[in-house]
């Protein structure tokens, strides 16, 4: 899967969970940059990402994520 397609599918998940009409994700983005993305919604996002891409994350992998780019990388590594 191309990075572009992956990003747009993750964006769809964010739109649904954070209940916003539009969102553009970039690699350096963190929870501080996105309204409504807090510790409460974070686990819903991760759960949905797992379902959407049919992958399984480990707690340690998810906890050490620093930004959106690292989430994309993690998904890619699981799909590879």
């Amino acid at each position: 899967m191309e990075r572009k397609e992956l990003v747009s599918r993750v964006e769809e998940i964010y739109k649904e969970i954070l209940e916003v009409d539009a969102i553009t994700l970039s690699d350096e983005m963190t929870a501080n940059d996105v309204e409504g993305w807090d510790s409460l919604t974070h686990s819903l996002l991760i759960n949905q990402v797992q379902k959407e891409f049919e992958v399984k994350f480990k707690l340690r992998e998810v906890i050490s994520l620093k930004n959106v780019g690292e989430l994309f990388n993690l998904i890619e590594s699981k799909l590879a």
Partner: peptide, 24 residues
Amino acid sequence: VSDYIFTPLSMKIALAKDWGKMGI
């Protein structure tokens, strides 16, 4: 509490089960 209890616990639930808001 958020970083060392809530996040690991909600993640554990989210990673294992599809409980949605109930898990949170």
